[in-house]
Design a binder for these strands. Structure first.
Lengths: 190, 190
DNA sequence: GTCTATACGGTGATAGAC
DNA sequence: GTCTATCACCGTATAGAC
């Protein structure tokens, strides 16, 4: 349908990812997306908050899809997840350390100031968790165990992404990938 | 010395922690610290950036100290670290999910916009890493191995903190604590 | 060292013509 | 659906009296 609406969301995602929520102005979004201010409020009557919620929601779905696709390249969950984290390390470097979509930074910036965005982020993280959890269940873990493992894995990835961005290097994420591999190996044996 | 300067830094740390860098205004810092605007620019001639750098620097030192103190309560590194992460989970809940000092959010918000703050955050993370690394070396790990393990542990904690804040629950961090415990147990055996 | 007043830019948002 | 003009507000920063 309206490609303008999607263009606005995509530009918003990119800017949020690189700058964060409060540093990203509507004017900048308008300028970079080529959209007129009039139509932004036509598509998103509730302004910045609604637009950001849409960006987070879309980002959650896309990221979950990428996780599923990435994990599908190996049958073994340990191999698949370790390899996937290495892929993230590469992408963080390739993107100039902008990395991982708007989710993490929007989540941090808005936990205490917007219930709507907090909910959007919580649901998005839920989608990511499901993607990892499924793979672990397919490899023989119980649902409950897989959920806890997925929480741990996502935590390590998010934290590793922060360190990689701060250090302007994919290495922290690569170290995380190695350790997650070791960990899953020992877990899947036992 | 000047207690006013420290008061300003402390207030800044608290606000940064809860709201982030771009959402925290100088006016708010002044109002809550009781400091006059005139004296803010007297103590921090370079304004917000300098003040934030000071807050991050102080927060790094204090947090590293807390880590050392926390890890000292158990001789065994695995027990010590697992217990410490549980403590963090408790603090995140008790603080109304404000958690962990200004470091993580300032790091995320300013990676691409301020070299000075990026450096301050990198150094602060270095201090935290040292604190974990030492404990692991004391428990028989090689320096290199301990460094990589510490990177992994910090990553998991930072990521777990995000999830705990987003979910308004200490549980994600508690799950991280459990898995880190399992992991270190298997690592320290082999 | 501290206080007040102020400058100037950018913010999100709205109104109304087209 | 789109564009322009304009709004009130808040951000950081500065100047100058005290």
């Amino acid at each position: 349908m309206s490609t303008m609406r999607e263009q606005i969301i995509d530009t918003t995602s990119t800017l949020l990812e690189a700058q964060g929520y409060h540093a990203t102005g509507l004017n900048q979004i308008l300028a970079e997306s080529g959209a007129p201010k009039g139509s932004l409020y036509y598509y998103f009557p509730q302004g910045k908050e609604e637009l950001t919620a849409a960006a987070v929601e879309q980002s959650g779905k896309i990221t979950a899809e990428r996780i599923r696709a990435g994990l599908a390249t190996f049958e073994d969950a340990t191999e698949a997840i370790q390899s996937f984290v290495h892929t993230i390390a590469y992408h963080v470097e390739a993107s100039g350390f902008s990395s991982g979509g708007p989710l993490m930074i929007v989540a941090m910036e808005t936990v205490n100031s917007s219930e709507r965005l907090n909910n959007a982020c919580r649901e998005a993280y839920g989608l990511l968790l499901d993607a990892f959890q499924e793979k672990l269940v397919m490899n023989g873990q119980t649902e409950a165990r897989a959920t806890q493992l997925a929480t741990f894995i996502i935590s390590a990835i998010e934290g590793g992404t922060i360190l990689s961005r701060v250090h302007h290097s994919g290495n922290p994420l690569r170290q995380v990938a190695e350790e997650i591999g070791l960990f899953l190996q020992s877990v899947c044996k036992g």
